[in-house]
Design a protein around this nucleic acid. Structure first.
Length: 175
DNA sequence: CCCTGATTCGC
DNA sequence: GCGAATCAGG
């Protein structure tokens, strides 16, 4: 994926908006956060070098192989169809969990974690894709918290989605 | 452990 | 120019 003019402009825009490198990379697609950072630096819009550059790093005799065998590029799993008519929620599990508890937190004893108000564009493999609000509504968003490994939801929402584990009381016997 | 940006350096 | 590897800080 080359840095086309459009992509660079979007990069600069998002970067100027205060998005983090990983966020920008996610929205751009096809690039890692390192690539974004590298490009940002090359463009000279390093922005504010806040505090992470205080260390006078004595260089690194980096000698490891330049091979990237571990990069299988399996990003298609969470790659949202940006720019397309992909406003529908396709990540609904078979259980089709209704976020009623979210809309009515008073009905649930557990406190819902702070919503990150994740847009569909910011969803990644590790962001909770629990829908909040009605799809189509301007207030619709996703949980956005860190999801469990291999789960589309965060710890809290996984319990609701699958109705198992901690959320399930011993009211019913397990077979 | 998760994240952040910064830097170096092989390509 | 590009970006992975690595680092350093939060």
């Amino acid at each position: 994926m080359s840095w086309t003019d459009e992509r660079v402009e979007l990069l600069k825009k998002l970067w100027a908006e205060g998005l983090s490198a990983s966020q920008v990379a996610s929205e751009l697609g096809g690039v890692t956060r390192n690539a974004v950072i590298g490009k940002v630096h090359r463009l000279g819009l390093s922005g504010r070098a806040k505090t992470t550059t205080t260390a006078p790093r004595p260089r690194r005799p980096r000698n490891q192989q330049t091979s990237r065998p571990a990069r299988t590029s399996s990003s298609s799993t969470a790659a949202p169809s940006v720019g397309a008519t992909a406003l529908k929620v396709e990540s609904q599990p078979q259980s089709a969990p209704q976020p009623k508890a979210v809309k009515n937190p008073q009905a649930d004893p557990v406190v819902v974690p702070i919503s990150k108000r994740a847009s569909i564009l910011t969803l990644t493999e590790t962001t909770c894709k629990w829908p909040i609000g009605d799809p189509g509504d301007t207030d619709f968003h996703f949980c956005g918290h860190k999801s469990e490994s291999g789960s589309p939801y965060c710890k809290y929402h996984s319990e609701i989605a699958y109705n198992t584990g901690a959320d399930r009381r011993r009211s019913k016997k397990a077979s």
